[in-house]
Amino acid sequence: MRIAACFVAGLALLTGCEKNQGIAPERMADAIFAVIEADRANYTNQVVNRLQNEEKVLEADEHWQDKKLLPLPAQMMRMGAERVAEKNSGFNYALLSLWPVNKQNKPRTELEKNGLQYVIDNPGKNFYGREKLGGTEYFTAVYADVGVSPACISCHNDHVDSPRNDFELGQTMGGVVIRIPL
């Protein structure tokens, strides 16, 4: 009886300690992704697709500063990721793909490769794992990046550097990779 009581008390203590550690990395990554995904969908649909494809008043272009046009949705997201990284915010994120227009955005680590393949093979599911980079262990989550607007599909299908040109609306085109140092 005493042993059982000690076991229950120890378990309660450990549970309490875990609670004191704050939010679990998986939940934090999910929450971060929800914000990224919402902003990305809104910018793509409400700004780029509306102005470029529907109202035809302003296009999005890779060289948006020189040409005084809109940043591409992927550039907009990367600008956010770089700003977060500069502020040393405690996490990083990146937009990657197995078929990137810019080859610097193809997977670089084994976990990125596995994660991107997983979210393609398992629609609706996320990929979670751990990896060690530069001496630091990271919790790494990969979320499917789905083509939400015709602007995404047409740009990737028509780009001369795109390794794939048969994307369809609603299809997974890549993934958002979120890393939290442990």
Partner: peptide, 20 residues
């Protein structure tokens, strides 16, 4: 100059191996 290789581009941990 809209620097093509700004420092902020290399802060993502996925670049760790390159930075070594």
């Amino acid at each position: 100059a809209d620097d093509s290789h700004p420092r902020k581009k290399f802060l993502d941990p996925r670049n760790a191996q390159l930075l070594e």
